[in-house]
Amino acid sequence: MAGRGRGRGQNVSFNIEQLGFGRGEAVPVSVTQPPPLFPTLENRPLPLIKDVEYEYILVTQKDLNTRMRNSSFHLNTAIEIQEIQQIHNPSYEKELPVLWNRMPTELKKSIAKKLGIEKLKTVKSGKKKKIEDPDKIFAKLEKKEIVESEGEGMCDGKEDEDEKEKSDDEKVEVEDDIEEEIDEEMDEGTDYASNYFDNGEGYLDEDDNLDEGEAQF
């Protein structure tokens, strides 16, 4: 084995010529590693255009970001709310300045505008709460019904809503945890029977989502 391919192929155990390389031709350099993940860029991107318009856009974008992030419409997750409460204001509340009369009533049902911290409480002590005194629950449910029926009577303007909210705040705070649980179990105003059994009509109901089916990376 070692004797074959003398002269040209001294380091290899076979005759180079058998592979089709003529004598004296360079053997291609052996590839010992995969190609680089980020090959050097031959064509760099063109420079960004920086004119008056884009200066304005930069400033406006930052302004917009700050405003949107601080607006009531920016919904914070539970953790974020906890953080904010720790750092800023313990009684941090956000009302949602939305035009409720233009929305389906099912969205209005939860008068408890505060999520997060209440939910967190629920999660922590959820298990415990479930074993609460049934009488207490019943009393709270009654109260809740009253509040809700008052809520349904409101059709216009968010001001009313806000006022109502301020007075109901105390009640709501206490009832909240129970409400959350009830909410999850019972969809008010919905037909339980017809929704429990999904008759499959909506199974392939993806007409609106045109982006599926394309190459995913």
């Binding site: 969205l107 939860s110 959350e180």
Partner: peptide, 9 residues
């Protein structure tokens, strides 16, 4: 509740 708020927004 979170979902309702999100939809409202």
């Amino acid at each position: 509740a979170e979902v309702k708020k999100a939809l409202a927004v």
